[in-house]
Design a protein around this nucleic acid. Structure first.
Lengths: 189, 189
DNA sequence: GCCAAAAGCTAATCTTATTAACCTGTGATG
DNA sequence: CATCACAGGTTAATAAGATTAGCTTTTGGC
């Protein structure tokens, strides 16, 4: 029997990809094992179980999202940076619905959990956007939470087909970016 | 053996309550049956299975949320209505995290699905808030999606303990209401 | 070439959901 | 009042998944 040459990273990556394809809820140890050409129990040599797998997929997703948002913002400031960040985030969620779903409702055990680190990186990317606006220090945390809520809410609602009716969703998102931009420019005290 | 006197509504109500207590993910047919003083298979006389149970819990949750938001808005307009609606919504989600989670990622089968009806009612409640602002017709859908994204995003992130650091979460929410109010007042064309 | 650990495998166990088959209280009806 | 159909329960059986135990084999370092 030839070795499959797996390691935790490969298992997690395959799990994340599969979650994007079939939905996190349908991601099963058996299905993942099949995808990897291996028997189910073999996966336990690389991850501790389903909970651990989900946690690692979540960390991967947050890390990738941070890269996407951070990269998109490079070289921009103000409204351009905000738009780039928001679009990059939404695109990531829509292209990777399974792995992003894994991040919801999962809290890191310790502060040096990879999940916490990745979350912090994503937050930093959004913090950078705020530097282009003259937001006073005491408002920064609030503005950050607002941005996060807006992006997370919109992206998850759309990924879940939560917007059913008429108007074009892309157009709504651009409207929303505009709304946030105007609001942030008005925050200066 | 005395009859338990169950019906679908009672089963769904108990399921929703249990989901709030232990988390939707930990809501199991066996646990729910135990709570109702009945054997597991008996539940299938009232709901078609776990998927059906979740769908019904989701419909209940959306309906209750619509009542809460709709009721809170009564008699208010403009900023007051917005604040009342947003607070009522967030309170509902925080007090009923399990049943609200059931609404995420669930789409109604047909347009007369109770889930669809309840969702529409919740939307109507938010639409009423917008009437207090002079939002032009083509912007109404966008503004509605913005409000929904904000409230949904903030509430779910908080329910999932997604806000870890410093600033007070209640304070952030009030800041966010203010932000939305100022933005909506500026939307008039 | 030898050895220990890593990476697979099969078989077994446990938890849950779901279905099948059966039983019985209860309310409508003759 | 007797009875009868059925709604609402029951136990037993089936199936899917996760996880664990114990065995085997490859493989990298000596």
């Amino acid at each position: 029997m030839p070795r499959a040459g797996l390691d935790p990273a490969a298992v997690v990556a395959a799990g994340a990809a599969l979650a994007d394809e079939v939905g996190l809820h349908q991601l099963t140890m058996g299905l993942l094992a099949e995808r990897l050409g291996v028997r189910t129990p073999s996966l336990y040599k690389h991850v501790a179980g389903q909970a651990d797998l989900n946690q690692r997929i979540a960390a991967l997703a947050l890390s990738e999202a941070a890269d996407a948002v951070g990269g998109a913002v490079q070289g921009y400031a103000g409204r351009d940076a905000l738009a780039a960040a928001a679009r990059a985030f939404r695109t990531f969620v829509l292209e990777h619905p399974g792995r992003y779903t894994a991040t919801i409702g999962r809290e890191p055990a310790c502060p040096d959990d990879p999940l916490a680190t990745a979350g912090r990186r994503l937050l930093d990317a959004f913090t950078a956007v705020l530097r282009g606006y003259e937001v006073a220090e005491p408002d920064v945390d609030h503005a950050l939470r607002m941005l996060r809520s807006l992006c997370h809410g919109f992206a998850t609602l759309q990924a879940a087909h939560g917007f059913q009716w008429s108007a074009d969703v892309d157009e709504s998102f651009e409207w929303l970016i505009d709304f946030a931009d105007r609001g942030l420019r008005a925050v200066r005290p």
